[in-house]
Design a protein around this nucleic acid. Structure first.
Lengths: 362, 362
DNA sequence: CGCTTACTGGTAAGCGCTTACAGGTCGGGG
DNA sequence: CCCCGACCTGTAAGCGCTTACCAGTAAGCG
């Protein structure tokens, strides 16, 4: 018991074994619940472990088992060194990551997060770094080209989020089509708006492209007019949305009756910019979002949007990846359903105050 | 060149060496930029690496080097299985984590995220799990008791965020005192409000306690009246803030002239709840936050709050941890400065529309 | 009471990588 | 023309842990 435990110098299973007077194999067995150790053995080991505050080394474990119990997640960040104001467009990503993390915990996995700056040329290197430290990786939108994915997929299972399917990876996304269709239908048919615009997200984003395409198809199908062009190019951020409105108004162009934003963040910026200039939402211009991030309901006016099952997308991405990691073969792409959430910003009446719609699950 | 590469079965440095016709030592040296390989050797190795899309195994590397290049981050999550509406209180935490992550990248580290449910009894186990997979860990508020920290700190360097300092760990926090003092001063002296209340956060949170304490001291110092008691107990979430207002109003109690919320999320819920009931902010009741999360500026009215350098706190936490990991000794606790950010919710006039205050970094 | 059966616990072989050390090659000086 | 040093490169040990395999022990049975 008078073991001199070195305050530095890593503590290993050997130290525990010595203290407990058993072999390292027994320590390992007790720690992992393998075999059937005698109660006494178990007791001695546990005692030594507590005594030393021993925590087994994950790297050694991983090397031995061939399983790190880590999934990597890689996504794009706004700027590089600049902190302020840049990172407001990440609500959605954070939500997804949370879903991944919760699902991962159920399997004893942890999540290794790595973001890549917008113009970071080391993206591939960074992804490789994560790949080496994980059993599988989840790539958010716009991280790697199809061939890049294919290459990497030879080393490690990959799941993409809102990306384009590859034969080497699985994609998890949501049903942009029916969401956008429901939204346009609501605005044109139920509210009767005849003049709309789509404020787009990143041009390269598959989600954005799908939404834009369906927006155009659906509006023209009902004979509504739309504004388009580079002036309506946003970037998924609030600043981007506000910027579009600012230039538009400065140029003295007239606003459409309804602005369909590529995501909630953009809508947030748009509503804010309009309010600043005295344009009333939804009376003068209706605004809608996409995603239904948690703050959407707290805006003024509260935001009509398409609810994506954000955390569930993350959880699904993990589950699919996990089944690939454990070898249970090839699930195919997953498309999750979305739902139109009507609030005030489209022109619908406010919910009754009696139902605060706050913190009350379903 | 007609190597049969097994699509399964891990690819190792041996495979690369064989393909390149060199030894594994050379491969390792090329990959890590050690030694001075002949250009030709380097070329052959790089070619083989690309050919195979080889990514070295992080676990093996870590085992060999004694460095995983991973920091763990652990924090509390809202609910366990329930997804909806629960996780809105994490804006602040996400911001910090982002800061950690960016700082970590500069050192080639990645961030291992793990959350613990509010009532999760496995907290310690979960933290140990992360500890085994990382070189050091950062603990958010309320994760572990002082003695728990002390024990774990024998195995691995620890930094706490907004926690209480221990001799075994370093704490990084922000200057709650001067922030709250500035806020109370602004409300009482400049706006002349004489009747305030503090809507608290988690009772156990050191930040919350500090803010509550200073709030009381500062208000009584200027002779203002305050409402207190269990009715004003929130939990850092929007739902919690809304709930407090709801009960208060139902009970027919009268509202103070200004409500100082423990954080921005709470303020968000409060503003929303007041608006639903027709109480005007700031005309009838002023509301303030704490943190200055990105959405604070987009609220209606925009939120007066105390800006914490959120991402910088994360970055600082990492830097401190890193210096402990690399053995460069014991920095001591860090307290970062905060700043009063005046917007509309306290009764100040709106900023001029000409300065949209959007996306324009300082 | 001796032998079989059922367990428990220990020994040692790797997991993939880094790196100290030794061996081989080549060029230049004596 | 031979020897030495400078440089590369290869061999092998070891990082901490899991686990197959075997030895030792105790209980069960004839």
């Amino acid at each position: 018991m008078t073991e001199t435990k070195r305050p530095k110098g890593t503590l290993t299973i050997y130290d525990v074994a010595r203290l407990a007077g058993v072999s390292i194999a027994s320590v390992s067995r007790v720690l992992n619940g393998q075999g059937t150790p005698r109660p006494e053995t178990r007791e001695r080991v546990m005692h030594a472990v507590r005594e030393l505050s021993f925590v087994p080394d994950g790297a050694a474990r991983a090397l031995s088992n061939g399983l790190k119990e880590v999934v990597g997640v890689v996504f794009r960040r706004g700027g590089e060194a600049t902190f302020e104001d840049e990172d407001e467009s990440l609500l959605f990503i954070d939500g997804i990551n949370r879903g991944i993390e919760v699902a991962a915990q159920h399997r004893g996995f942890d999540v290794l997060i790595s973001s890549v700056g917008v113009h970071d040329s080391h993206a591939t290197a960074r992804i490789s770094g994560v790949a080496g430290k994980a059993d599988g990786i989840i790539l958010h939108d716009r991280m790697l080209s199809a061939v890049g994915i294919a290459r990497l997929a030879e080393m490690i299972p990959i799941v993409t989020l809102a990306g384009s399917p590859t034969r080497a990876s699985v994609n998890v996304g949501c049903d942009n089509d029916s969401g956008m269709r429901a939204l346009v239908n609501h605005l044109t048919v139920e509210h009767g708006y005849r003049h709309l615009a789509y404020l787009s997200g990143h041009a390269a984003s598959p989600d954005n492209r799908a939404r834009a395409r369906v927006f155009e198809a659906a509006t023209t199908a009902v004979g509504a007019e739309i504004q388009t062009g580079p002036a309506w190019q946003g970037n998924y951020s609030a600043a981007g949305g506000a910027q579009v409105i600012a230039s538009l108004l400065e140029r003295g162009g007239d606003l459409p009756r309804a602005i369909v934003c590529a995501n909630d963040q953009t809508a947030l910026g748009v509503i804010h910019a309009l309010a600043r200039r005295g344009v009333r939402v939804p009376d003068d211009v209706a605004v809608t979002g996409f995603d239904d991030v948690p703050v959407a309901r707290h805006l003024h006016p509260s935001l009509t949007t398409i609810r994506q099952p954000i955390e569930q997308m993350g959880a699904t991405a993990f589950d699919v990846l996990y089944s690939r990691i454990s070898g249970n073969g090839g699930e195919s792409d997953v498309v999750l359903p979305v739902r139109l959430v009507l609030r005030e910003s489209c022109g619908c009446p406010p919910a009754s105050p009696a139902t605060p719609a706050l913190g009350v699950g379903a």
